[in-house]
Structures are given as structure tokens and as C-alpha cells.
């Protein structure tokens, strides 16, 4: 088991209802973590319902949902970015 800081931004944050939390998990990949969180409560399931509408960053670098979580400390979920 490892403990991660999980951060949420924009509508992902609004749907889940908090900006960050500590999550202790054995999930080997981002996708497995998403499955685990989605199973917790409907608000998580709602936020993660459409993964194509989500982006993920591992330790502040963009990553894929099949990326491994080994050695990762911070995971962030957010919609496609709208800067500029």
C-alpha cells in the first residue's frame, strides 16, 4: 500500500466536492486508482464517468491512464486545459 496526494481541478473538483485528499491504495496504475475511487461513492463515479474527458498528471507531468503509480507521490485529475 502507498499513500498518494490526489488533487482535483475545475469541474472534477466541483463534482467530487474537494480539492485534494490523501488516498492509501494498492492500485498499480492510474486506471486502477480511478476504478477504486469510482467504486467509493456516486460523486466519484460521476466525476470519472467519461475518462476521455479527463486528463491526469503524475507528480505534475501529464501522463496516461495506463501509467504505473510506483514511486508517484501526487496524482491530479482535471478536464482538458483551457489556458491562453
Amino acid at each position: 500500500m502507498t499513500t498518494l496526494d490526489v488533487l482535483y481541478f475545475a469541474w472534477v473538483r466541483e463534482r467530487i466536492g474537494l480539492p485534494r485528499e490523501r488516498v492509501t491504495t494498492a492500485a498499480p496504475t492510474v486506471a486502477a486508482l480511478v476504478d477504486e475511487l469510482s467504486a467509493r461513492e456516486p460523486r466519484y463515479a460521476a466525476a470519472f464517468a467519461d475518462r476521455r474527458a479527463l486528463r491526469v498528471a503524475l507528480d505534475q507531468d501529464l501522463a496516461d491512464f495506463d501509467a504505473p503509480l510506483a514511486g508517484v507521490r501526487e496524482v491530479a485529475f482535471f478536464p482538458p486545459m483551457t489556458g491562453g
Binding site: 482535471f78 483551457t82 489556458g83
Partner: peptide
């Protein structure tokens, strides 16, 4: 500009008479 638009982690929320809504990324940005 092209990269800041879709690779820098900013999210815009617009407010108007109809309420507030997150700006959606456009396929053209990608």
C-alpha cells in the same frame, strides 16, 4: 500560444446572466 492553450494547467470558468460554466477545450486547440 498553441501550447499554453492546451498544455498549461489553467481552466477558465465564465460567468454571465445564465450562470457560470467551465469553458470547454476545442478539438481545434489540440
Amino acid at each position: 500560444m498553441d501550447y499554453l492553450k492546451s498544455r498549461a494547467p489553467f481552466w477558465k470558468k465564465e460567468s454571465g446572466a445564465a450562470g457560470a460554466a467551465w469553458v470547454e477545450a476545442k478539438a481545434a486547440d489540440e
